[in-house]
Simulated assay, not measured.
Amino acid sequence: MLPRSCPCGSGSPYAGCCGRLHDGTVSAATAEQLMRSRYSAFAVGDPAYLLATWHSTTRPAALELDRDVRWTGLDVLDTTGGSLLSGTGTVEFRAHYLVGRRPGTQHEHSRFVREDGQWRYLDGLSPA
């Protein structure tokens, strides 16, 4: 079952926000929008979207999502570049999750680049 409000934290309905990216109606206009949509793909369990939005040079052959992880929130901490006219961008974020009743966070500094005119996730580093 798909969520009513978008997991990315925009406050918009899922169908009018990341749902449109997940179903291919629109493409991400910015690196941050792609990052938010990828977080939402983890939250709704859409590995096909994650693979499709991964840069061809770093994309794994397959992706299996951990069904025990429930994503509970996203904080975008910083962005650089990644605008409508940029070719590269970075997004620093903190994603919150639960495994059973144990909370956790994933803090990442993600890099995005355009490939064939579309934003793609290149890679991410955990801040030291």
Score class of each variant (00 low, 15 high):
Arg120Gln: 14
Asp46Thr: 02
Thr79Lys: 06
Pro47Tyr: 03
Tyr39Leu: 11
Val44Leu: 01
Asp66Cys: 00
Pro103Ile: 04
Val76Gly: 08
Val91Leu: 07
Ala29Gln: 14
Asp78Gly: 07
Val26Arg: 13
Val69Gln: 13
Arg36Asn: 08
Ala95Cys: 04
Gly124Asp: 05
Arg70Gly: 00
Val26Tyr: 10
Thr30His: 05
Ala15Leu: 10
Glu92Ile: 04
Ala52Asp: 15
Met35Pro: 02
Arg111Glu: 13
Ser110Gln: 06
Ala43Leu: 05
Arg36Asp: 03
Met1Asp: 12
Val76Asn: 12
Tyr97Pro: 00
Leu2Asp: 15
Gly124Arg: 01
Thr80Lys: 06
Tyr97Asn: 04
Gly16Arg: 10
Ser40Asp: 04
Leu122Ser: 03
Leu98Gln: 15
Arg101Cys: 07
Thr53Phe: 13
Leu84Ser: 09
Leu51Trp: 00
Arg20Ser: 13
Thr105Asn: 12
Gly9Asp: 10
Leu122Cys: 01
Gly24Gln: 13
Cys8Asn: 08
His22Cys: 08
Ala31Asp: 08
Gln106Leu: 15
Glu32Gly: 05
Thr105Val: 15
Thr58Ser: 15
Gly100Cys: 04
Ala41Ile: 02
Ser110Glu: 09
Ala31Leu: 13
Cys6Trp: 08
Leu50Ala: 04
Leu77Trp: 07
Ala128Leu: 11
Asp123Phe: 00
His96Cys: 03
Met35Val: 03
Ala52Ser: 14
